[in-house]
């Protein structure tokens, strides 16, 4: 599983001319530069003054304006929103991984009355977009008194994307060999312990997949946090915070670029450090 996406296949054959490879690399490098230009522009703008931004379209700022970051952090409250996003992401990853792994394990490995009904229900709802269910979800959270706090937001963020993960886990668990499980059962190990100590470790690749996909989902989520934080701006996530900043300060491009930079730097660092897990985890979604 690890290192699975290292480039090793041959497209042009062993004897492809070096010039061809060099040319391909050069074209790709140029395209990549254009591809990540929005990021370069964003970081560069976040360091310019509002005046310079209009006068100097180049990427290198003449004078570093760190005040943009102060404005973003203090006035636009990015620090707080950052913390909120972290809580929602971590909380929902925990809830989703545990609950979908257990559900997928039972659905994937055992036959019991009602199994088929559950399975069909999950597969059928995969296509339902968030907009379809947002109104009842909001009403439900209001009824429970959770419509304006982080716990409610975490719960709802967990609930939305889990269907796909249940199906993925069920598929993965159904393919695992049953010798270990049976041996453990003969030894008298309880149902829950077999799952926790024997089966879950075997499903590690799928656990990584689900964690990565849920992190991406929670970090990107917008509609749900937007609706839930309408009544309580203090619990906004980064995405909603930067959207609100745009509404309030539509001319402060440099401040907004600073806010945007703040909100992506941690994920980008995390991604570069854990790249292997990201890539292999996502690959696991198609490979099953």
């Amino acid at each position: 599983m690890i290192g699975l996406l290292s480039p090793k296949r041959i497209m042009f054959g062993d004897h492809a001319p070096t010039a061809k490879i060099a040319l391909t690399s050069a074209i790709l490098a140029f395209l990549c530069l254009i591809w990540i230009y929005p990021f370069l522009w964003m970081v560069s703008t976040s360091l310019k003054s509002n005046m310079e931004m209009f006068a100097n379209p180049g990427l290198i700022p003449q004078e570093l304006m760190l005040d943009n970051y102060r404005r973003a952090w203090v006035e636009a409250n990015m620090g707080r929103y950052f913390f909120n996003t972290l809580i929602v992401t971590a909380g929902s990853v925990f809830l989703v991984t545990i609950s979908t792994a257990m559900l997928g394990y039972v659905l994937g490995r055992y036959s019991f009355p009602g199994r088929k009904v559950f399975f069909v229900a999950f597969v059928a709802t995969v296509f339902i977009p968030q907009g379809f269910t947002i109104i009842p979800v909001f009403e439900l959270l209001s009824m429970m008194g959770l419509s304006a706090n982080l716990f409610g937001l975490t719960l709802a963020t967990s609930g939305h994307a889990m269907v796909v993960f249940v199906v993925l886990f069920a598929g993965y668990f159904s393919q695992l060999p049953k010798e270990l499980e049976e041996a453990a059962r003969v030894e008298g190990v309880s149902f829950f312990k077999i799952f926790w100590y024997v089966m879950l470790p075997l499903a590690r690749p799928m656990v990584v997949t689900v964690i990565i996909m849920q992190v991406l989902h929670a970090w990107n989520d917008f509609l749900l946090p937007l609706v839930i934080t309408l009544a309580n701006p203090a619990i906004r996530t980064l995405s909603v915070g930067i959207y609100a900043f745009k509404g309030e300060q539509s001319i402060d491009w440099t401040g907004m670029s600073a806010a945007a930079t703040i909100s992506i730097v941690p994920v980008v660092i995390l991604f570069i450090l854990l790249q292997r897990y990201f890539i292999n985890g996502l690959a696991g979604a198609v490979k099953g």
């Binding site: 991406l216 990107n220 995405s239 945007a260 992506i264 994920v267």
Partner: peptide, 9 residues
């Protein structure tokens, strides 16, 4: 890179 960047940003 764009995949790990929040959509709203």
């Amino acid at each position: 890179l764009p995949v790990v960047t929040p959509v709203a940003v």
